[in-house]
Amino acid sequence: MGKVVLVTGVSDSFATLVARSLADEPSVEKVVGVDTVLPDGDLSGVKFVRADIRTPVIGKVIAVEDVDTVVHLDLSPQVRGRGGGKELNVIGTMQLLAACQRSSVVRKLVLGSSTAVYGSSPRDPALFRESTSARGGVRTGFPKDIVEVESYTRGFARRRPEVLITTLRAAHLLDVDHFSPLGQYFRSAALPAALGYDPRLQFVHVQDLLAILVESVRKDRPGTFNVAGDGVVLLSQVARRLGRPIVPVPPFGFASGARRVLRAVGSDISPDLHRLLMYGRAVDTSALKEIFGFEPTYTTEQIVEQFRATVRSGVLSGLGARA
């Protein structure tokens, strides 16, 4: 008998992609997609159920569909005005975990977490391991949500030790088709950056992240894994490659200054991005390679190059030459 997989937040374009890839898997019998709004993309092979994971309805969905694998991707940093985002991320996860705990069929949970859980501060090591906790403290916004989501998941793991839990801490996607806060930032015509800081950034390729998610459903890979392309790029380096001018903004009041600049060029910025844009963040993916057994096919640099080829080139792209 094949698996029945529940994918939350399926209206997000990347989650849609995951659901469809899972539906193509021979070992998967059925994929159920759950969200409050209908996805824009094609959901062929996926059973869509309109349900809100913040309500106990999700427990009924799990019970009715006999779900044995839950892929939780409904963690979104994009909602401005923190109330909505927190509702969705934290309360949704709590409801989902409560439903999973009640169910006797669920035996695997894949959590699509984020490297935001490490925060971003000058007191952090150059590369975060899975065992490193956020030293600078994670006080607000999406990073705090993610920390809480992960701690609830750990609580769930204690109460239901027989459920396999895979936590994937993924770096930002950088892709025109799929939303990510950094992707949105790098698409804008001018890039506000904190004066005197040049953060290290890491990205993950859509294909890699997709393959890892499918792999963690297909095989049993319990544990926590960082997911990112090899190597790092500097913010200034990405800006030069994309040919987009950097607008220096004073570090004090960087968040509002950056937002003002981006609004002026007709774009927007996620509210939790400013610390990342000051101090940067990079993760160690050796656990992914050695324990999970997945070698990312794209380096961070290649992801940036691919992104450059697909987006409109910036105003300064004539200045530099590339090998």
Binding site: D198, R241, G320
Partner: peptide, 20 residues
Amino acid sequence: FAALRRRMGGDYAVDEFGFD
């Protein structure tokens, strides 16, 4: 000038610590 152009184009590598 070629090196300068490569720098301007961001065509250089830093290691994971940001060493250039």
